[in-house]
Amino acid sequence: MKSALITGITGQDGSYLAEILLAKGYRVYGLVRRSSSLARNRIDHLQRMSASSGERHHGVLQLVYGDMNDGASLRHIVDEARPDEVYNLAGQSHVRVSFDVPEHTADIDALGTLRLLEALRETKLDVRFYQASSSELFGARDALPLNESSPFRPRSPYAVAKLFAYWTTVNYRESYGMYAVNGILFNHESPRRGENFVTRKITLGAASIKLGIQSKLVLGNLDAKRDWGYARDYMEAAWLMLQQPAPDDYVVATGESHSIKDFLSEAFGCLDLDWQQYVETDARYMRPAEVETVIGDATKARRVLGWQPRTSFRELVRMMVDHDLGQLRKEVGSSLLHPEKLV
């Protein structure tokens, strides 16, 4: 049985990747931080299945306490899991918030990666390492679409920290011969996307407006254009990157870009609403330095990994809207039974 360690398992990508690996029969170790409020809703279903010998997958999921801030905990986990594959998805992943907590962002996203790579180097295990790099590395660019050779121009504390982690990963590959890769993932969304990311804010907002729970939606820059894919498709690419004869870095993207306005019109359209009646903009949500347009070119991933996105933009938006509508209906239903929950 292959063993994999996932940092950031409680996040959007971590939960999809855990599903994929469990379905392939891996023993999956997930790193979780101690917190007085449990934040594991994205993997609760996997823990339940794992406990009751699920039908859909054969793997085993085990959560271990640790922190990207704590090198000793990382060494301990690596010793325990003796992983064949390590997926480093943990990070303070919110770009705008990184302007509020730049030092923390660098400590976790950049130094956290370095601590993990050092822990792996010390154990001398034959391990494959995946680093969750980001299209934010490229920043604003005139020449689009962006591929693996496009120059980096990070424009936020998040992006600068991610660049540190990117180079550190390349450095460990070249200096120590480690199988270490960067997946440079463009935006990837899903019904599990954090609720303060713009796509999820929109689909939740649209569904809330549809159900009469909310009357307007306040957003930042509506003209920013992004290359949005489905997170689950992207985690397939992450896995593929660790199954190759040689380690390399790959851009993962759809190759299409859509503006926030496009996303709004698609999402509200699914619910037969006109977004322009409900959306307001607020400069507080603007980033101090904004990246206008982002499009990725995943030709290399298509050619070498045989990967391609399976979910279209429309399908993605609909999936998210349907999910949020369903979830809100359940909540509204339960609050009708329990009116005190509305307070």
Partner: peptide
Amino acid sequence: FYPRSPYGCAKAYAYYITVNYRES
């Protein structure tokens, strides 16, 4: 850039964060 050492990677971070504070 193409830093090739932990020192180079750390200096690249410092370079870009300096640019970032200038622009932001």
